[in-house]
């Protein structure tokens, strides 16, 4: 039986007074597109750093493709590509030099064709000879992605890759990452854009204060919240009838919202509004989204 892409067992890490990781257990299967979510300071980056060998855990074990990240660090690091959260670069080199050096550190010969392909896919070809210093923030971010891919790692971890990146690249990047995933690469993604995670990830872990507080498929997580959110704007001065007011929430901009377990509840609400003679000016029916789940999980945890 083959080992999972990532296995994390009982990992703890303390920085002075801060318990950054308070006992994390997690397995990510090969070929998954996995999301790691959580508020600022939840420990996502620390967990990724431990996986990459940048941070030594106080306790616990981490494996990448079955290789222990300490004992068998060479194989583990060869299997792992990390796009760091911080926008770091070496101002001494051009884009191509940066990538060629990175390939060299991994002992790769003849990296040029693959580097060309990555440059092409990340729309960096025209910048290949430009010094890193002269790139815009989004361009630097793309180079970081390219650097993580240069040794064709089986597991790719992206720590907030779309922070500060324009729409076009974001779409291009996800297309590229999806293709890598289809080709068999395991992808782990952290992001604060929950709609991104929702549309990309098959399975999601939510972290809070160094612990995993929810872990499930994206579909199951979405099932945790009531089916649909109905938002209404009522005519001037109109008030909700008594029976409805108790289950409605006031929202900003004079909207009221209801959580519907199923679509047919809509019928009942609209009927009682009509009977009470309340005019509806605007109406939105939202599908349940990950943001609602996230808020609920974070409140409960």
């Amino acid at each position: 039986m083959s080992s999972p892409a990532i296995r994390i067992a009982g990992v703890t890490k303390r920085f002075g007074a801060v318990q950054a990781l308070a006992g994390v257990d997690l397995e990510v299967a090969r070929g998954e597109f996995f999301g790691l979510l959580g508020p600022n300071g939840a420990g996502k980056t620390t967990l990724i750093s431990a996986l990459a060998g940048l941070v030594r855990p106080d306790d616990g074990r981490l494996e990448v493709m079955g290789h222990d990240v300490q004992a068998d660090y060479r194989a583990a690091r060869r299997s792992l590509g990390v796009v760091p959260q911080e926008l770091v670069f070496d101002p001494f080199f051009t884009v191509r030099e940066t990538l060629a050096l990175q390939a060299g550190y991994f002992g790769i010969r003849d990296a040029d064709p693959w580097i060309d392909e990555i440059l092409e896919n990340l729309d960096l070809t025209s910048k290949a000879r430009v010094n890193m210093r002269a790139l815009s923030g989004g361009m630097k971010r793309r180079v970081l992605v390219a650097q993580a891919l240069v040794h064709r790692p089986q597991v790719i971890v992206l720590d907030e890759p779309t922070a500060g990146v324009d729409v076009e690249l974001r779409q291009g990047l996800w297309q590229f990452v999806r293709r890598l995933n289809r080709d068999g690469h395991t992808i782990v993604l952290t992001t604060h854009y929950l709609e991104e995670a929702e549309s990309l990830c098959g399975r999601i872990a939510m972290m809070k204060q160094g612990r995993i507080v929810a872990l499930d498929t994206t579909a199951n997580l979405l099932d945790r919240v009531p089916g649909h959110a109905l938002r209404l704007r009522l005519g001037n001065g109109a008030r909700l009838p008594e029976g409805l007011a108790v289950c409605a929430r006031e929202e900003a901009g004079g909207m009221v919202s209801f959580d519907l377990a199923a679509c047919d509840e809509l019928e009942a609400i609209l009927r009682s509004l009509r009977e009470a003679g309340v005019r509806v000016e605007d109406m939105e029916l939202g599908r349940p989204d990950l943001e609602q789940v996230f808020v609920q999980v974070m409140r409960g945890a």
């Binding site: 990459a52 060998g53 940048l54 660090y73 060479r74 194989a75 690091r77 060869r78 792992l80 990390v82 760091p84 911080e86 770091v88 670069f89 070496d90 101002p91 050096l101 990175q102 550190y105 991994f106 002992g107 650097q147 040794h151």
Partner: peptide, 17 residues
């Protein structure tokens, strides 16, 4: 310089002993 700018990670991530 690598530590202050953070690009030291580029040599810490690869399998260098």
């Amino acid at each position: 310089q690598s530590k202050v700018t953070g690009n030291i990670i580029f040599v810490l991530l690869p399998p260098l002993s």
